[in-house]
Structures are given as structure tokens and as C-alpha cells.
């Protein structure tokens, strides 16, 4: 087994353990057993032990989530559709994510801390993706004059991520409600034309 492969196995094992037992109920021995490796190999990859394993597990899950989101929006024809699909994807994925739901119910505090560590990185990925979509909208003459594309990408990324975790009154299960939010609020100042 190659090094990266062993590391990935440890992370999968850790994800299984924390989904079933939570962070507090998971030991390095549990992770090693679930991954089918020795405790020594776990420590070789994660000398910091449990906290380092958990942080890396959450980081890997976050990366997987945004990778799948990028695939889900890859063929969206425009900015509004990109954001709508991303929000719908996030809603379905987060609701179906067993580890997330179990930990939110039992140990939200450590989970949200680990997620918070990933926030700057995820904001960067989302902003970069949106910047390229916005550039295409600008090239097609659909961005309002005076809108700074970098600032607009950062704005849509920041607010979009916040809606995923904290939807407020926006019912993300309802595509019509998502479209109303995206076209009449989120992008209203950025795109030309009524209803974006």
C-alpha cells in the first residue's frame, strides 16, 4: 500500500468511526482498526494523534464536497444557474451526509471548529470558480457597468456559502424559492436585466 493510499484509508476509517461514535468516542486504536492498519502507521501519518486525524478527516470531506459541487455545476450555462445548482446540490448533499448530521446533533462544537478551519480555503475555491463564470458573463455583456468582478465573485461566494449553512427563510429544497433568492436578491446588483 502506497503512503497516500494508507493515509486515505486512515481518513476513511476515521470518518466511519466518528459517524458511529462521535469525536469523543473515537480513539486512535478505533481508527487503526477501522482502517486496517497498525496504530504505528496511523501515528506515522498523523503524529498529532486524534485532533490531527479529525481535522484532516473534515478537510478531506470538505474537499470532496466542493469537488462534487464543482462537477454538479460544471455545465451550467450561466452564473444564475451555477449558483442555483450549487445551492440545490449543497442542500441535498448536506442533508444526506450521515457524518455531518450525526455530529451536528451530538457534537456541534468540535465539528464547527474543524469546519471553520477550512473556511478560508473553501471561500477561495468558490471565489475562483465564480470569477471565471463572471468573466464569461462580462464578456457576454451581462454584467452591470461599474461592477468589480473580483469583488462580485467574493460577494457571491461569501453570501452563497452562508446560505448553504444558514438558509434562513430560503427553502433550499424548493427550486423556485432558490431561483427567487438567487435572481432577485443575490445577483440583482451584478447582472443586467430584470430578474437577472
Amino acid at each position: 500500500m502506497s503512503g497516500p493510499e494508507a493515509r486515505a484509508r486512515v481518513l476513511r476509517g476515521a470518518l466511519d468511526c466518528v459517524t458511529r461514535q462521535g469525536f469523543a468516542g473515537t480513539t486512535v486504536t478505533d481508527v487503526a482498526r477501522a482502517a486496517g492498519v497498525s496504530r504505528a502507521s496511523v501515528y506515522r501519518w498523523f503524529p498529532g494523534g486524534r485532533d490531527e486525524i479529525f481535522a484532516a478527516t473534515v478537510a478531506a470531506e470538505v474537499a470532496r464536497f466542493y469537488g462534487a459541487m464543482a462537477a454538479a455545476v460544471a455545465d451550467a450555462p450561466d452564473l444564475a444557474t451555477t449558483v442555483e445548482r450549487a445551492l440545490g446540490f449543497a442542500h441535498r448533499e448536506l442533508r444526506a451526509n450521515a457524518a455531518l448530521q450525526a455530529l451536528l446533533a451530538t457534537e456541534p462544537e468540535p465539528l464547527l471548529r474543524f469546519l471553520d478551519h477550512e473556511y478560508a480555503a473553501t471561500l477561495g475555491w468558490v471565489t475562483d470558480h465564480l470569477r471565471s463564470v463572471l468573466a464569461a458573463e462580462a464578456a457576454a455583456g451581462r454584467v452591470r457597468p461599474g461592477v468589480d468582478l473580483d469583488q462580485a465573485a467574493g460577494f457571491v461566494a461569501t453570501v452563497g456559502i452562508s446560505v448553504m449553512a444558514t438558509p434562513g427563510r430560503c427553502d433550499l429544497a424548493d427550486p423556485a424559492a432558490v431561483a427567487t433568492f438567487v435572481r432577485q436578491e443575490l445577483l440583482a446588483g451584478i447582472l443586467v436585466g430584470p430578474g437577472a
Binding site: P108, L112, L115, A165, T166, G168
Partner: peptide
Amino acid sequence: DPGALAPYLDFAGGDALLARLT
């Protein structure tokens, strides 16, 4: 420790804060 506020800003805590400010 900015991460210490995360439970009050995300998911259930975030919805509660948003509702109060709203």
C-alpha cells in the same frame, strides 16, 4: 480564538442569530 464562535454562527446557531437580527 475566532473558531470559538463557530457554533453560534453556523447551522442551527447561525439560523438563530440571523432570525434575531432579522
